[in-house]
Simulated scan of single mutants.
Amino acid sequence: MPKPTKGPRLGGGPAHERLMLANLAAALFTHKSIKTTETKAKRLQPVAERFVTFAKKGDLHARRRVLASIGDKTVVHELFTVIAPQVAEREGGYTRITKLGFRKGDNAPMVQIELVLEPVVAKPKSAKKAAAAAAAEAPVEAPAEAVAPAEETVEVVEAEATEVEATEAPAEEKAAE
């Protein structure tokens, strides 16, 4: 007996569930945001994120794997050429689920699932991390200060050499006379 998939069932058999999730993913990639029930959105999220990960790879094998699930070539083309470059910097979390309330007819919890297409913003460093970074940079500055006195000694040596030359020059002039 085949082991059933984990998570809530969406009605019908496993083939119907696969087709329903593929259609929801196609609608999500076409419209960038769809309104559906919470159960369907939670089942759709890992499927859609996997398709976006394939699109980020961008090779022919990945395109054929997505095309095997989503039969519409225009949706797959848009996923690979429009959506994938927009989420290239993002390392995961390509979708966002926002709760909307309950449906009027049957009181089903409704949500909006959308693609997260905003650019990734680096988080500001905390005070502890900033202090650790400053401490890590401090030893780097110490050798730079050690080099500075060595340069001063070179200047002093050069100055003494010019003084010696200046005192030797009159002595040679006197010897020539």
Score class of each variant (00 low, 15 high):
residue 29 F to P: 13
residue 119 P to L: 04
residue 17 E to C: 10
residue 52 V to M: 00
residue 117 L to Y: 04
residue 50 R to T: 14
residue 153 T to W: 15
residue 176 A to H: 12
residue 69 S to I: 03
residue 113 I to A: 07
residue 120 V to P: 06
residue 53 T to S: 14
residue 132 A to D: 15
residue 98 T to K: 05
residue 79 L to A: 03
residue 85 P to C: 01
residue 41 A to W: 08
residue 56 K to E: 09
residue 41 A to D: 04
residue 48 A to P: 02
residue 69 S to F: 13
residue 92 G to I: 03
residue 169 A to G: 06
residue 6 K to H: 14
residue 48 A to F: 00
residue 82 V to R: 05
residue 69 S to G: 08
residue 139 P to A: 05
residue 8 P to L: 15
residue 100 L to P: 01
residue 35 K to T: 12
residue 116 V to N: 11
residue 90 R to W: 01
residue 119 P to R: 09
residue 160 E to S: 08
residue 34 I to S: 00
residue 23 N to R: 15
residue 82 V to E: 15
residue 122 A to S: 12
residue 59 D to L: 05
residue 31 H to M: 02
residue 172 E to P: 05
residue 37 T to M: 02
residue 58 G to P: 09
residue 30 T to E: 08
residue 17 E to I: 05
residue 167 T to I: 11
residue 12 G to N: 10
residue 50 R to N: 14
residue 109 P to N: 06
residue 169 A to P: 02
residue 169 A to T: 09
residue 28 L to F: 02
residue 84 A to W: 07
residue 132 A to P: 07
residue 4 P to M: 09
residue 96 R to E: 09
residue 23 N to E: 09
residue 100 L to K: 03
residue 46 P to C: 02
residue 136 A to K: 15
residue 144 A to Y: 13
residue 145 E to V: 08
residue 45 Q to L: 05
residue 140 V to T: 06
residue 36 T to C: 08
residue 48 A to T: 06
residue 162 T to I: 13
residue 76 V to R: 15
residue 85 P to F: 00
residue 36 T to V: 07
residue 46 P to M: 04
residue 78 E to W: 04
residue 102 F to K: 14
residue 121 V to M: 13
residue 127 A to T: 07
residue 127 A to R: 12
residue 12 G to C: 10
residue 41 A to N: 01
residue 80 F to S: 02
residue 26 A to G: 03
residue 11 G to C: 09
residue 145 E to P: 02
residue 96 R to A: 03
residue 12 G to M: 05
residue 142 A to K: 15
residue 140 V to W: 02
residue 101 G to M: 07
residue 113 I to H: 06
residue 66 V to S: 07
residue 26 A to T: 07
residue 54 F to L: 12
residue 144 A to H: 08
residue 48 A to W: 00
residue 148 A to F: 10
residue 100 L to M: 12
residue 153 T to P: 03
residue 120 V to L: 12
residue 163 E to D: 12
residue 110 M to C: 02
residue 100 L to F: 01
residue 42 K to V: 03
residue 74 T to K: 15
residue 2 P to G: 11
residue 5 T to S: 13
residue 25 A to N: 05
residue 91 E to K: 06
residue 37 T to I: 04
residue 70 I to M: 09
residue 40 K to Y: 01
residue 12 G to W: 07
residue 59 D to P: 09
residue 17 E to N: 13
residue 54 F to I: 06
residue 15 A to I: 10
residue 133 A to P: 07
residue 154 V to Q: 15
residue 139 P to M: 11
residue 48 A to H: 04
residue 103 R to V: 00
residue 22 A to G: 00
residue 73 K to Y: 01
residue 138 A to P: 02
residue 136 A to C: 04
residue 104 K to Q: 11
residue 161 A to P: 08
residue 91 E to G: 12
residue 39 T to K: 07
residue 30 T to M: 08
residue 152 E to W: 12
residue 163 E to Y: 08
residue 72 D to V: 01
residue 117 L to P: 10
residue 177 E to H: 07
residue 87 V to Y: 01
residue 27 A to E: 15
